[in-house]
């Protein structure tokens, strides 16, 4: 890649992240940058994350995972600004960053929950693109 195109891509990436996450703090931005780099690696045509795609991922009914948890909404509820509930009955704080400001700030934690929950709901790992889209959606809720 030429220096110019590299610079352009980097700027585009950063702008995409900046524009999509009005409320994200530095920790969330760092996590998003991590996924952006991975997404770019996987697909050179990567243009940035999309809250719309993230929203679809959250609300969709998936078939590859466990029948008891066909959707993220099964446990998190259909309103990201409200609490969800685990299958064991414990309350889950809202996914919306505006309600739970510490969300998506710890990469290890983020990776742990994506690993578990994508497997539960979809029967597979989420791609870096999906993870970034999801966080982008929730950062704007």
């Amino acid at each position: 890649m030429t220096k110019t195109s590299l610079l352009t891509t980097a700027t585009a990436l950063l702008m995409a992240i900046a524009l999509d996450t009005a409320q994200a703090g530095p920790a969330q931005k760092a996590v998003l940058e991590h996924f952006a780099a991975l997404a770019k690696n996987a697909d050179t045509g990567f243009q940035g994350f999309s809250a719309e795609r993230g929203k679809k991922l959250f609300f969709d009914q998936h078939s590859g995972g466990k029948p008891e948890t066909p959707s993220c909404t099964t446990c998190h509820g259909t309103d990201p600004t409200k609490s969800g509930r685990t299958r064991a009955g414990k309350e889950i704080k809202p996914m919306a960053l505006s309600r739970t400001p510490e969300r998506f700030s710890d990469l290890k934690k983020v990776e742990k929950w994506f690993r578990r929950n994508c497997r539960n709901v979809m029967g597979r790992e989420c791609t870096p693109l999906e993870k970034g889209d999801f966080i982008t959606f929730m950062a704007n809720q």
């Binding site: 466990k66 008891e68 299958r87 290890k108 742990k112 690993r115 578990r116 929950n117 497997r119 539960n120």
Partner: peptide, 8 residues
Amino acid sequence: FGEDASLD
């Protein structure tokens, strides 16, 4: 117990 609770 039916959930993925895997850890590092």
